[in-house]
Design a protein around this nucleic acid. Structure first.
Lengths: 233, 233
DNA sequence: ATTGGCGAAATTGTATACGATCACCTGCTG
DNA sequence: CAGCAGGTGATCGTATACAATTTCGCCAAT
């Protein structure tokens, strides 16, 4: 008779699992931008061959979270200021559209859920410690992802997943940590505006909200270090 | 002495080359939706090992042009009507934003280039033959891609690349070929509106243009056939 | 005639092997 | 002592080998 329940922790070790683990580590800032992700090292960490690791790293490179340089290896992405600007510019271009589309599908239960999310976000904001700080940043991104998911559009949701993840990298690099959480009130205002049915105002608030996130970054150039970066391509 | 110029056609056979070749074949409709892409077959075609083919197929699956099913293989994507709707809904959400952003960066030379593109498009429209038809469809997509590129935003451009490629798949599946080219005049109107500086009107036209493309599709359900599809997941 | 089961063949999943390229260190030379 | 040549080790790129899974054909049973 086969045991349906494995006796030991039998995680589905696969390309997907490795990819998700590394992605989580990156957006949680446990892996700093620029960190080298050696295929052998990662493989040893997960007890798999380089084959699977390569698959995971290639996937992450599609998402823009990892750069693979030919014959040199994979590194946690180190977005340039220009790249960062493009990421936020893209968000400004699409998030108003998301907001309008999401509003079409929102009922009372959705508003309740959003309020719940904001409550949690506020709670984290008032806590101390790095763990709380990480959780708060994640919650802040989750607000935008939640709106995207409410469009019921999987294609768009994947775009937003990527944008939010990369934004988190940018904030990790250029964020002035103290100020980064000032967006909480803006999230609430946006929800209120949607609830009132004033979509134009909501879009306006959203655009400014993204502006504020970007404005709170200090985009210094490549911290002078990576000489190779400067002359790449 | 080493010959800098290889005597025979020495193409850079690599994952990228294979990926691009297959993508071209898909968007050019030389590969029908649902076609199985066996790793061994593709490898034999390009004279490379399955390793590289797998990389290419994984990349294409990330772009949504190929579905890889575990232990079964990779297939040219066969977008469901629902998926098709999401793709066009996404385009409606972002293309107005692209248009506004592109307009900020456009000078006389850009308008000249766009007009050139439209001229070519019109020329193809009046030709006969499947080759011309393919070229026309490609040119029609290029118009949207050109606008995206004029934003100077590589992140957004990649999103549009994906959306246009997937749209081409959808049109291949559900398009009523005779009518598909009616969008040409609309492209011209959009350019004219931008040139006049009437962005609101241009956005309006763009939204309706995408509506028209979608309306010209006949989205029948999975052509009744693929039982497996119905219960996948 | 249709269904179910078994085994062979084909196909994918993963690991390993080997060649190619790059980074680094050493030692020579000016 | 600086700078460059060449070797050496580490890391990546690709092919191949083997394991796991699915598919398909065949035949018996209902």
């Amino acid at each position: 008779m086969k045991t349906a329940m494995p006796d030991e922790e039998q995680i589905d070790i696969s390309t997907h699992y490795i990819r998700d683990s590394i992605r989580d580590a990156i957006v949680d800032r446990r892996l700093a931008p620029g960190t080298k992700l050696s295929e052998a090292d990662v493989g040893a960490l997960f007890n798999v061959s380089r084959t699977l690791v390569r698959g995971a790293l290639q996937a992450l490179s599609y998402e823009g979270l990892v750069n693979v340089e030919k014959n040199r290896g994979a590194f946690v992405a180190y977005p340039s200021p220009e790249e960062a600007r493009q990421i936020f510019a893209t968000r400004r271009m699409i998030e108003p559209g998301i907001l309008r589309e999401a509003a079409k599908h929102m009922g009372p239960s959705h508003f309740h859920y959003l309020r719940q999310l904001l409550l949690e976000e506020g709670r984290l904001m008032n806590e101390r410690g790095q763990t709380a700080r990480r959780a708060e940043i994640k919650a802040s991104g989750d607000f935008h992802l939640m709106l995207a998911s409410m469009t019921g559009n999987a294609v768009m949701q994947r775009f937003m997943d990527e944008l939010v993840a990369r934004s988190s990298l940018v904030i990790a690099l250029y964020g002035q940590s103290a100020i980064s959480s000032c967006g909480h009130q803006e999230h609430q205002d946006i929800v209120t505006a949607i609830e009132r049915g004033d979509l134009n105002h909501a879009c306006h608030l959203m655009a400014h909200h993204i502006d504020h996130i970007e404005a709170d970054l200090y985009m210094r150039e490549n911290k002078g270090s990576d000489l190779r970066e400067a002359f790449r391509r």
